[in-house]
């Protein structure tokens, strides 16, 4: 087990950072905001952390904190600027934002290292730290998925007009998702870079947008569990597919396309549906007497001396 852990430590760690990246796109999507600003903030966070460590000798924790705050602030400001946009127009504007970041760092001179990027930014991070950050994030997100808050977020996604008629400040919710996605993107970017020790302009690209989206749709877009499932699938897939050798990418494409066709709710949706069907079938067959849980006799509750 220990051996297995150490030889797979990179995959375990990158599962956690990729999860944060996927969440940075999923959080706005859950509120009906089709924004990829989180990916741009991933780049911003990565560069801030690297610049902080390489040029200013910041500590790992400070660098990550700074990256997260900067990501949140930039994304919130962007949200203010483009809050009128919806749908794919919003998606395009945020993709444009992400790609502009990449051009800026190419032209950033010594500060960003130009086309070659920065290297030697090795942070003091271990799996424990990453787990702690991911756990805090997931706990906070669970809170936004359940209860009245969860229902309000759902209303903002499904029917903004109705939501605002019900007294929900839709615009505020939307802006908030920008800030949250910025913080998550900043965290993901800074931790990825500090684990890798290098960052280049090439890291901020359209493929990252595609990856994040694929993870969410294949995993499941309604809850963090879906993002986690998708992340595990896509981070570990190269390892699992290594046996197909040179045609790995072809198999990858077939699997992704098949998931889009056959798993409408993503893997998590399929599992939940499957479980429900299973339960229903069980209940139907077991509807007749013996195994049904006997109604609790009132006496048991009263006569309570065990």
């Amino acid at each position: 087990m220990i051996d297995w852990y150490f030889s797979h430590i990179v995959l375990i760690q990158s599962t956690l950072t990729t999860l944060l990246l996927a969440l940075s796109v999923q959080v706005p999507l859950r509120a009906g905001v089709f924004s990829f600003a989180g990916v741009g903030c991933y780049g911003i966070g990565g560069y801030i952390a690297a610049i902080g460590m390489v040029h200013y000798g910041l500590s790992t924790a400070t660098a990550i904190l700074l990256a997260a705050v900067a990501g949140g602030v930039v994304a919130y400001a962007l949200g203010l600027l483009i809050q009128r946009l919806t749908g794919l127009y919003l998606a395009m504007a945020t993709v444009a934002f992400t790609l502009i970041i990449s051009v800026l760092v190419v032209n950033g001179g010594d500060l960003t290292g130009g086309a070659a990027g920065l290297f030697g930014a090795l942070g003091m991070l271990d799996t424990g730290h990453l787990l702690a950050v991911a756990a805090v994030v997931v706990a906070a997100l669970t809170f936004t998925e359940l209860g009245p808050l969860g229902r309000r977020v759902e209303a903002v996604r499904e029917d903004p007009e109705l939501a605002s008629a019900m007294g929900i400040n839709v615009a505020r919710y939307r802006r908030a998702t920008f800030a949250v996605s910025g913080v998550l993107g900043g965290l993901a970017g800074s931790m990825t870079v500090l684990l890798r020790s290098t960052v280049t302009p090439d890291d901020i690209n359209f493929h990252l947008v595609v990856l994040a989206l694929t993870i969410i749709i294949v995993g499941g877009s309604r809850s963090w569990i879906g993002a986690l499932v998708g992340t595990v699938i896509f981070v570990w897939m190269p390892e699992m597919l290594a046996f197909v050798g040179e045609w790995e990418d072809v198999v990858y494409g077939v699997l992704v396309a098949a998931a889009a066709v056959y798993l409408p709710g993503g893997v998590t949706g399929a599992v939940v549906d499957g479980y429900r069907t299973y339960r229903r079938k069980r209940r139907e067959t077991a509807d007749s007497p013996p195994d049904a849980p006997p109604p609790q006799p009132a006496a048991a509750a009263v006569g309570g001396d065990s």
Partner: peptide, 20 residues
Amino acid sequence: LRILIGGIGVAAIPLAIAER
């Protein structure tokens, strides 16, 4: 959204073949 992802999957196949 699923059409987007389906397209992404489909695109990987000819790309891999041509690269190979």
